[in-house]
Design a protein around this nucleic acid. Sequence first.
DNA 1: ACCTGAACACCGTTCAAGT
DNA 2: ACCTGAACACCGTTCAAGT
Lengths: 238, 238
Amino acid sequence: MESRGHRSGRTGRPPRLSQEAILVAAQHILDTEGPERLSMRRLAREMSSTAMALYHHVQDKDELLLLLLDAHARRYPRPVLPSEPRTRLLAAAQVLHDLLADCPWIVEVLSFDDFVSESSLWVVESIVDAAVGCGMTLEDAVYAYRVIWHYTTGELAIRVSRERARARPERPEYREHALEFLDSVDFPRLNAVGRQWARLTSRDDHRRGLEAVVAGLLEQEAEVVDVMTDAVRACPCC
Amino acid sequence: MESRGHRSGRTGRPPRLSQEAILVAAQHILDTEGPERLSMRRLAREMSSTAMALYHHVQDKDELLLLLLDAHARRYPRPVLPSEPRTRLLAAAQVLHDLLADCPWIVEVLSFDDFVSESSLWVVESIVDAAVGCGMTLEDAVYAYRVIWHYTTGELAIRVSRERARARPERPEYREHALEFLDSVDFPRLNAVGRQWARLTSRDDHRRGLEAVVAGLLEQEAEVVDVMTDAVRACPCC
DNA sequence: ACCTGAACACCGTTCAAGT
DNA sequence: ACCTGAACACCGTTCAAGT
């Protein structure tokens, strides 16, 4: 992972391309045409160059995507988190989501037992730290991070395929057929939801879901104590 | 979405291919070579036919994948769920995960404000039903389903890219570089985890995470009442 | 050192033609 | 009705050659 820049030892011809310029052009394609259209060839065309020239500045397409995430994370402002442990954890988890929400296509490329991009590691640190602040052991805090990570990734992955479906030629017969099938079969709950399903599932409830996830994680910890304390404070008999 | 079978009106030549046979061959490629290798051309070769012949039996590749999920779901045994509402919800959510764990590649193709495959709708029904059984409104139950769905999808998506990374040429420098970077920077929590990260993140904690998610969802509901009741019952002052 | 062109080994899908 | 071959419009990547 050697960073290949213009380390001007001034031999050979001067570079027309640079990693920096490549990333700018790539981001431009992402913004204007979507992740589907970002290919090495398309990118080269954008830069009036050839696909092969790009390989002098990035190792392969995966590295290009990782570099894009890294650049995005570097630009992203680090927010000040609240100090109260629980709201801190929630806020840190929300930051992870918001940071990645701008580049959900990255989920394709993240294998993630490996670390992510360097510039986004601070988000991971802040989540694990907040979890420890809530009284978790380090090990449990990492586990909590993973649950939050899975939840976040899932939301992003679904968002990506929704976009993908929107971009493609519509097939309304599919939905119609599905609804007909639903009418024909005895699923009381789904029958009751019926055509409202689309409305209900397109709502952005990420924040609310995150609250549930965080609440559940904390409940698994010593949190039991706090709940008791609160309850006792509100106990009707004293 | 017309189902094209051998509706023998016995005109023209008899079919060599059938949707059934195509699905069997496709599943075979999936099992032996992985989702990366399943292409229309590869599948045709497997069947000693041409890619274009397949289009007489499935509309396109997306439909092929959906049909594969459907066939898998049809084979999958419907388990008897526990009757106690909370464990029922948890068990239903686990079934969703287990069902999809055999074909995680499907997440690529699911846009999912639309319904899924018909044969797996019963899982959705059972989750929504269990959530209602826990005292949720229908609307909240659908929301709970979505949170569970996101969490499940995330786990699967990550699993897929982990497999993908494992299959590709290794780049151990990446991991080394990441660890060096980590040492060079002041992230106390991540520094403390260090080389244990890989071990911690490769553990299968899906069940435990699911428990947290379900607990969090229930806490957001009238569950407050139960907690109070429990707390009062254990209240040290009465 | 940096870039090009041709090539390799693939994709999904359309379309006109064959039996 | 069912299948084929050629073609269209793509991919990521390698490799030998040019400046």
